[in-house]
Each structure stands twice: as C-alpha cells, then as structure tokens.
C-alpha cells in the first residue's frame, strides 16, 4: 500500500465533496441549524444566569441536532461513495490504474472523513462564535469534547455507510438502505427499547447494555458526561452507569463507538476485495 496513492485519492474525494450538491445541502442545514440553535438558546430568557449553567439549553439542542443530522449526513454520504462511482463507471476506471482496493477504500474513507470534519468544524465553529459573542458559557473542555465525539460518531456512521455502499450495487438502493438505517438508529431503536423497558420491566443493567448497542445513545451519553461530569440527567440508568464504571466509563463509550468505525469498514473492505463484478 502506498501512502501517496491514498493521499491522492483522499484529496480527489474532498474535491468531489465540494462539488457535490447533497454535501453542500447538508453543510448548509447543519451549519444553519447549529447557528440558529446557539443563538436562540442564549438570546432567550435566562441569559442572566449563564454563569451558573453548563451549556444548559445550548448543549442540549446541539446534541439533538448532532443526533439527527450527523448520522443522516454520514450514512448517506458513505452510501453514495462507491455505489455512485460504480454506476458512473469511474470506479472500474480507477481500479484499472496501478492502485489496490485497500488504497481506494482508505483514500475514499479518509477523504470523506475530512470532508465531514470540515462540515462539523464549520457548524460548531460558527455556533461557538455565537456563544462567545453573547458572553455565554465558555468552558472549553465540554465544547471540545462535544465536537470530538460528534466527529467520532460521524466516522462510525460513515464506515457503516460505506458498508452499505459496497453491499448495494446501485446508489439509489444504497441511499434507501442508509435512510432506513438512520431511521432505525434515531427513532426505531430508542422507541423499541423504550417499549421493551416498559413491557418487560428490564433491569437497569440490561437496559444500559442494550443502550450501548446504539452508537447514537453512546454519543449522547459521552457528550453529557463531558458536559455535566455526571449522567444523573439520564435518571437511574445514568447514575448506575457512572457508579459502576466510574472513570472507565469514557473508555467504555469510546470503545463502543470505535467498534462502529472498525468493524463495518473491515467487512466492507473484505466484501469489496472479493468482488469481481465491476
């Protein structure tokens, strides 16, 4: 594997993203919403008390925004990556060059990761300026961690998106599957778990373990723990998690999110490498 090849493909991928209308749309909506949310939540009532608050409402709404938009963005972008090129026939052309498939996949993955990082950095950067400009809460660490975890979440969802892209040969199919997976993570998973909790009176331990399976829940818990240094906002389950795992909790969360980056990428490389039909 040659790094130079990976870097070239990576840069080509970023350039493609910059010319991609979908990508621009996501950028615009994420940045716009982040700006709007941080402006609204600080200019409203309670401004006089920002000295007391964690991010309070701002963080809560930013977490919600990330939970909604980032997986959607990363999944669909990932799903479109290989499948669209295959449809256009450019993938076959690319693979005819002296490059191997790992280089192609890594280059594409890293390029898209950087593009997503660009979007996140722009959105958070602008909302950070809004927060600081209004003299709002400005503890650096929680904000930095929120950005970092959002990026890790994006990496995981991108990896899953690429897996979808490799499995589905047509880009329309891939996008459809990506949207379905998004719905699964954002709504169906949580609602299902809620129903299960109510119907089967799940013990807290089981509930927490099941919640770890959803990377979105893990992102939310990690973001909250860095904001509040506690999880008591999540009721008994959060308190249980913190009391049981204490300082290891962050590592547990990081581990749970890394799994979503490494395993889908590994599988998709395996499948992509086996495939002969291009």
């Amino acid at each position: 594997m040659e790094i130079r090849v990976v870097v070239t493909i990576l840069r080509k991928e970023i350039d493609d993203s910059l010319n991609n209308y979908w990508f621009m749309l996501y950028t615009l909506s994420f940045t716009g919403l982040a700006l709007l949310l941080s402006w609204l939540s600080l200019s409203g009532s309670g401004t006089g008390y920002t000295g007391f608050a964690g991010f309070g409402r701002t963080a809560a709404s930013l977490i919600n925004l990330v939970l909604l938009v980032v997986p959607l963005m990363a999944l669909t972008i990932g799903a479109g990556s290989l499948s669209a090129e295959q449809e256009r026939g450019t993938l076959a052309y690319l693979l005819a060059q002296p490059v191997n498939r790992l280089e192609v996949m890594l280059g594409k993955y890293l390029g898209l990761s950087l593009s997503l990082l660009g979007v996140l950095a722009l959105g958070f950067g602008l909302s950070g300026i809004t927060i600081a400009g209004q003299g709002g809460q400005s503890d650096l660490w929680p904000f930095a961690v929120l950005v970092l975890f959002s990026f890790i979440l994006a990496l995981g969802m991108l990896s899953l998106g690429m897996l979808i892209s490799v499995i589905a040969h047509k880009s329309a199919v891939a996008t459809g599957i990506a949207l379905f997976v998004w719905l699964l993570f954002v709504f169906v998973g949580d609602l299902g778990l809620m129903g299960t909790t109510l119907a089967f009176k799940l013990p807290i331990r089981t509930l927490f373990s099941l919640a770890l399976l959803n990377p979105l829940q893990v992102f939310k818990m990690s973001a909250l723990i860095s904001l509040n240094t506690s999880l008591d906002v999540l009721g008994p389950t959060g308190i249980y998690a913190l009391q049981t795992y204490r300082d290891n909790l962050v590592w547990l969360f990081l581990g749970a999110m890394t799994v979503w980056i490494v395993i889908p990428f590994g599988i998709s490389y395996f499948i992509f490498n086996q495939r002969g039909d291009l």
């Binding site: 660009g118 950067g125 909302s127 927060i131 809460q137 400005s138 503890d139 650096l140 904000f143």
Partner: peptide, 20 residues
Amino acid sequence: PPPPPTWPMWIMSIGLIMAT
C-alpha cells in the same frame, strides 16, 4: 459567580473554522 472568560471559546471556534 463571575462567568468564565470567553477567550478560550473564541480561539477554539476560530480554530475550527480554520480547520474547515
């Protein structure tokens, strides 16, 4: 209590935009 200083937030935000 006095609010924390805002400059770390400024630096961080500008850094993020530069990253973009």
